[in-house]
Design a protein around this nucleic acid. Sequence first.
DNA 1: TTTAGCACTCCATCGCTTCGAGTGCTAACG
DNA 2: CGTTAGCACTCGAAGCGATGGAGTGCTAAA
Lengths: 348, 348
Amino acid sequence: MELTDRKKQILKIVVENYIHTAEPVGSKTIAARMERRVSSATIRNELAELTEMGYLEQPHTSAGRAPTPKGYRLYVDELMERQRLSVRETEEINAVLRTRLKELDAIIAQAGRAVSSFLNYPAYVTATGKKQLIVRRFDLIPVDEWDCIGVMMLSGNRVKSHLIRMQLKVDPEQFPALASLLNAHFTEIPAAEMGERLMELTEQLPAPMFLLLSQLIAAAGDALEEQQQKIITTGARALLKLPEFRDAEKAHALMSVLSDGKENLPVPSDAGPMKILIGPENVADALKDTSVVVASYDIGEDMRGLVGVVGPTRMDYASVIARLSGFADGLTRLLEPHPDPLKEDKDK
Amino acid sequence: MELTDRKKQILKIVVENYIHTAEPVGSKTIAARMERRVSSATIRNELAELTEMGYLEQPHTSAGRAPTPKGYRLYVDELMERQRLSVRETEEINAVLRTRLKELDAIIAQAGRAVSSFLNYPAYVTATGKKQLIVRRFDLIPVDEWDCIGVMMLSGNRVKSHLIRMQLKVDPEQFPALASLLNAHFTEIPAAEMGERLMELTEQLPAPMFLLLSQLIAAAGDALEEQQQKIITTGARALLKLPEFRDAEKAHALMSVLSDGKENLPVPSDAGPMKILIGPENVADALKDTSVVVASYDIGEDMRGLVGVVGPTRMDYASVIARLSGFADGLTRLLEPHPDPLKEDKDK
DNA sequence: TTTAGCACTCCATCGCTTCGAGTGCTAACG
DNA sequence: CGTTAGCACTCGAAGCGATGGAGTGCTAAA
């Protein structure tokens, strides 16, 4: 059954009030904020129906109403007025992002901090949403006969380097050969295919060479995987400012998710620039009474990352959505392959 | 004035009780725990004197006594029985540290997490306490005519790599020359001297070469500095379990220090394997009612790092000290240059 | 359908009392 | 003189009831 316009308006008022006060909203307050003047009694009737329909709930009989997750959902989907950022704010966001950092990881880490401090909620960022991370180029720098530094240049201007201790003694002269093997067969492919490629080479190489190569591939695979899954969280302490997390238990549980249980944070892979998960819509138990808003941004042509915030279900969705997509857009623009900020400087 | 043995014993009992209960200790409780049986009245007389001398305090007239920072100090310096770790615990610690990680940063970050979860206090770690970090070797990997990847191999098996965009177009052929210049003049010296060295080269080099070189040195300096000051914190949420941080304000303030105000964490540079800062002994305001215990460990021959924990003044010093120095010793052993765990495997 | 009116519910707050842990002091004791 | 028993006293924590107010649901009238 469709809701009448008035019911919707009432629901909207309840949500918006509750978002700011964190206290149940009463009929008088609502009446005062209605456009068409109606009495509180009328509102009460409407409230009773909305409650019955599951959009609102009462903490106890003689209290006002608070939205249920279903109520928030309707609000977010239909009632909320999408906020537009003021020019000033857009500029502020871009100013924060416009950074002298050149490496992707550093840029997005900083973006995460900025999001968190802008919105006053804990934030999380990833740098590989959809597409596979691939290696653009390998380099091996010999250190001594046992060790070398493996350097991988990844998609999205990322550089990963690792000290690798070889299983066999290696003549430093051999490293260039190994490196060119790596570059010839293992670049521009997703990590998952590396195993197959390696197999194809089994017979074409002398055994020791093959052993070394497979060790290097294993190391590369590890590094890629680590990079792939990396979720950076910041600003967990913002939780403590919120009345719903006064209870140390709750705050602790949520902070555990943010620091050790990052795999529970939603990382939607399906399309859409923005995803909102309200309360129980979250799969992870620990997030059942929080909401998560997460936006995706493009990294160059064929990769994408995520920026998300975690907050109470009564979070200020309109504001969060507007600012978060401001950040996502800013990042997308910043990471566009062509108009490189530094080159731009040059062109002038 | 020296304290009588009995006063010391009483002080010790008060501290140890308070550490575990976080509640003021009364005369009866103390009497029950005294070796030589005395009445609670006697204890009360002693307590009154100890209070007057500033070792104890009363939250209000009809409460028991709690130690003052001065009291804790005496306890730590004289009364505390140094705990020895059981063999089992030592092994546990070493098991946690015995890691397949090869890079220093990763090792100490993991050590930090382990310390925090062992002790249930927030922990922090650094990797460069005393000696300057120096570059062992530079490498430049050309990417295109504007970009290269700078790889620095640092003291302590550390590898730092960065994408660097050059200010001038560079013929890829030039990179080896630049790299050998770097290696010839800028390795094995502290970052502070790099500037001087650079100056010495002013006239010996063609201007564009010099420009590129100085850019590379600047980048290296930045990277070193960043590395130098890096303090990694973990486990801030452990605070929420402590009754003294039930107050969200306090917890928030301290968490701010742990995440954004790391420069306020004590990083003692003077000798001594362990340092204990009790309450107001901390310089930073935010730490005035917390205690910090910090131990140092050696990284190879001539560098050292720190492991520290932050907790309430009533922290369990004996336990923290024992475990923390267990970790510090473990790290020192792990990072000894010679008996390299991997090579050991080989030798058998 | 809306509204005024009213009885009712329930929480938050405040003040009051009670309880007990703990103190400080005094006087007696060895 | 140090130690101890005894006792009056203090003060916070916890429990209790009364009060007030915000908010409800229901009824009856417009």
